[in-house]
């Protein structure tokens, strides 16, 4: 007979590492900084997620995938997943590993700093050149922009920086 391991917050986090962004499947929602809080109470699990953008159509999919990932823990009897806007998600929540994995997907991670006039700069996701132009601040999804690299002549995407002092 195997005794059930205790349901700890750490084990829930481990399970959540398998939940990827449906639109960027190399990056987990953990590395995107979308996990606000995880609590356990006996066999109950509650996860609070921070949406990146309010109108993001992927949110429902992420919620479903989160529930499914936690269901993999055999001793869980009840799962609660909810979204909150407090604290608000900001792009500096993305982990270093998140930055690496975004680059692996061909997306430049969001820059950490804004210039004084509120604009920002990223280097090319492919060759690292700083010689880039903004093609369209609105990319294929709300959270991404489209840029063009004048060095390697590639079109690439960048994750938009989002901060509370915008």
């Amino acid at each position: 007979m195997t005794a059930l391991t205790e349901l700890t917050v750490e084990r829930v986090y481990e399970a959540l590492l398998n939940v990827k962004d449906p639109e960027i499947d190399t990056v987990s929602i953990f590395d995107l900084g979308m996990i606000g809080e995880v609590t356990t109470n006996g066999t109950h699990v509650k996860v609070v997620l921070l949406p990146t953008f309010l109108g993001c159509p992927a949110l429902e999919i992420i919620k479903k995938n989160t529930i499914n990932a936690i269901k993999e823990l055999p001793e869980v009897t009840e799962i609660e997943v909810e979204f909150t806007f407090h604290p608000p998600w900001t792009s500096d929540r993305i982990t270093e590993k998140g930055h690496q994995n975004l680059r692996a997907f061909g997306i430049a991670p969001p820059p950490r700093h804004f210039k004084e006039d509120g604009s920002w700069h990223v280097d090319c996701a492919y060759c690292g050149s700083t010689y880039v132009t903004m093609d369209n601040i609105f990319g294929p999804t709300a959270c991404r922009s489209i840029l063009y690299c004048k060095s390697c002549k590639n079109v690439f995407e960048a994750m938009k920086p989002v901060s509370t002092n915008m």
Partner: peptide, 17 residues
């Protein structure tokens, strides 16, 4: 107020555009 903080970040890009 909490929703507004979040909206403000997205609005930044709308205004720019």
């Amino acid at each position: 107020a909490e929703v507004a903080v979040k909206v403000r970040m997205e609005l930044y890009y709308h205004r720019l555009h």
